[in-house]
């Protein structure tokens, strides 16, 4: 028996786009969708919920506690809970991952709004901003760097967590791991790891770029 190489390039070439659902490119696409939807849903929910937690302070402690408990649950447990509701579909992965994203994003929104310096908020009031406009034009924009920092964590962890979905056949690139383990064939595993890491680095890089473009005013403030 000849020694199995770590990477068989011909296998990659044959399976990159073979048209089937197990093609690497199809898995990559699935992975991207399943990793980003939870972050998107998470952000949409975390913004109003975070605002509510700032407006009604008593809400924050129970919300944060609930989110932390959710975060401490192994993702597999959550998947199995939703498996009975949503079956072997993407939703069984996307819904739990949305909860994980929320656990990071709600505190990020709350901390972001708390990061608005008091003199800034007060001068906005004194200039004659009404509450809604003050929130949209002053407080949220000033909160952006902190919210984006949370978004980076949520995005990268979501990209990594999707692979666990492979256990129910919805793991994007994670499916390559199962394939590899079952056949004692390393190439799919290496491909999966490399692509997930690249995806995470790319997504994080894009978010950093977005931060630079969105908040040119914040770069030096941290050192100031």
């Amino acid at each position: 028996m000849t020694e199995e190489p770590l990477v068989r390039w011909d296998w990659i070439a044959r399976n990159w786009a073979n048209g089937g659902p197990t093609a690497i490119s199809a898995l990559l696409e699935n992975h991207v969708v399943m990793a980003f939807l939870p972050v998107l849903f998470g952000l949409v929910v975390a913004l109003p919920l975070g605002l509510a937690c700032v407006r009604w302070r008593w809400l924050y402690q129970p919300t944060a506690a609930l989110m932390n408990v959710t975060y401490s649950l192994p993702s597999l447990v959550l998947f199995s809970i939703f498996l009975s509701v949503t079956g072997l579909t993407r939703s069984t992965v996307v819904i739990p991952l949305t909860f994980f994203a929320l656990a990071v994003l709600i505190p990020a929104v709350v901390d972001g709004l708390a990061s608005v310096p008091d003199p800034v908020r007060q001068s906005a009031v004194a200039m004659g901003f009404r509450p809604a406009r003050r929130l949209l034009r002053v407080e949220l924009p000033v909160a952006v760097p902190v919210v984006l920092a949370g978004l980076r964590v949520a995005t990268v962890s979501s990209i990594s967590l999707v692979s666990v979905g492979a256990l129910i056949g919805q793991g994007g690139l994670g499916n390559l791991f199962i394939d590899g383990w079952q056949r004692q064939f390393y190439t799919p595993i290496v491909v999966g790891i490399v692509l997930i890491v690249l995806l995470a680095v790319l997504a994080d890089g894009l978010l950093v770029l977005a931060q630079r473009l969105l908040t040119p005013w914040s770069r030096a403030r941290r050192t100031a």
């Binding site: 310096p117 003199p119 800034v120 007060q122 001068s123 906005a124 004194a126 200039m127 004659g128 002053v138 924009p141 000033v142 952006v144 908040t215 005013w217 914040s218 403030r221």
Partner: peptide, 15 residues
Amino acid sequence: RGIGYVIQQAGLFPH
């Protein structure tokens, strides 16, 4: 809006 206000530490909008 009809009264100017200057606050300690300026309170400028950083963004």
